[in-house]
Amino acid sequence: MQITLNGQLQNIENSQTVADLLEELQIAHKKTVVERNGTIVIEEFHQQEGLMDGDRIEIIHFVGGG
């Protein structure tokens, strides 16, 4: 399936849900803010929020450096 992730087209092979996508991107253990098609998906719903072809996904993860 093809999605637009942070403004760039990407092919996603193994992810059915937001939680899968965070795993695939190797940021599942981080604090994140996720938006799907303009609406924020809170952490409690990451497992059940399904992905569809053409989705616009924005993901921002927190880091501590500076």
Binding site: N6, V33, I40, E58, I60
Partner: peptide
């Protein structure tokens, strides 16, 4: 907005977070 970027992969993101 909450705003992020990656200058190497050229990704960027900006999210309205008021609902949080």
């Amino acid at each position: 907005t909450l705003w992020s970027f990656d200058v190497w992969s050229n990704e960027s993101s900006s999210i309205y977070v008021d609902s949080l």
